[in-house]
């Protein structure tokens, strides 16, 4: 397994990425390869730049006024910061689930159907119905909402909203899924469902997952990257990071001593 992935080229390759918010140096010279069929966990203390780095991968940082990104990020060997890249298409290929649930103030159905609609992915009404149902099913929300698809997505509970956002993201079948603490508002049952979903999605997608739960990282990721103060301290196989980290800071963080 590990042998095979090493030989295939990386899905995303970040080289020397720096991010500044005005004068704040939020991500400091990070280089990282992310592979298809793998879950990569980004861990690190709060404020270390995990979300910022994640947002570079689908250029969501473009929308922040005083944010500057330098370095190179290749998606399938193509520089996503090159001038000929269509950011809108890029974001359809690299989907994102945000740290804070942000459903549209529309019905549950329309929330999930929005992506397929604007990209013209459904040919018929039945087609769209199926995409919506399967996406909700995968996100572990179908049973709870199947009788009230016309209710506002914003009336769901926080955890349900987050799963709705996951369903919305996978409904357009992206190649890469960026997840920023998708389970931070979920109960253990829903968390297990999302983890099962990630497990299932792994084949065919590259998944990058920011998490504060060491157990979660250990359970479902194949690679782990440890960030501290904007720098990538250590990156490698999850088992190796959790059993024999090379950096003392990584060891301290994993064992709960680094604050």
């Amino acid at each position: 397994m590990t042998m095979a992935t090493v030989q295939t080229p990386p899905k995303i390759s970040a080289q020397g990425v720096n991010v500044f918010y005005g004068d704040t140096h939020a991500v400091d010279n990070v280089s990282l390869d992310l592979y298809q069929d793998e879950v990569t966990a980004l861990i690190g203390p709060s404020g270390c730049g995990k979300s910022t780095f994640l947002r570079c991968l689908n250029r969501m940082n473009d929308t922040i006024a005083d944010c500057r990104v330098s370095g190179q990020i290749l998606l399938d060997d193509e520089d996503i910061y090159a001038s000929q890249i269509d950011v809108v298409q890029l974001r359809a290929r690299v989907g994102m689930v945000f740290q804070k649930p942000n459903p549209f103030p529309k019905s549950i159905y329309d929330n999930v159907a929005y992506g397929p609609r604007i990209h013209g992915l459904a040919d018929t009404r039945e087609d769209l119905d199926e995409i919506v149902a399967v996406s909700l099913e995968k996100a572990g929300l179908w049973d709870e909402v199947k009788d009230r698809l016309d209710h506002l997505g914003t009336t769901l509970s926080g955890g349900q909203q987050q799963r709705l956002c996951i369903a919305r993201a996978i409904a357009i079948d992206p190649e890469v899924i960026l997840m920023d603490e998708p389970c931070s508002a979920l109960d253990p049952i829903a968390t297990a469902k999302v983890e099962a979903l990630i497990e299932e999605l792994k084949g065919g997608y590259a998944i990058i997952l920011v998490t504060h739960s060491m157990q979660q990282a250990a359970r479902i990721s194949q690679k782990t990257a440890f960030f501290h103060l904007g720098q990538l301290i250590e990156f490698g196989d999850t088992t190796q990071i959790f059993t024999s980290p090379t950096s003392g800071r990584t060891r301290d963080y994993i064992t709960g001593r680094l604050v």
Partner: peptide, 19 residues
């Protein structure tokens, strides 16, 4: 958050604004 949600799905600037 509403804008980023739509942008994250690949909505164009006009779609974000008018939808």
């Amino acid at each position: 958050g509403l804008r980023t949600a739509a942008q994250g799905l690949g909505a164009s600037p006009m779609q974000v604004v008018f939808h």
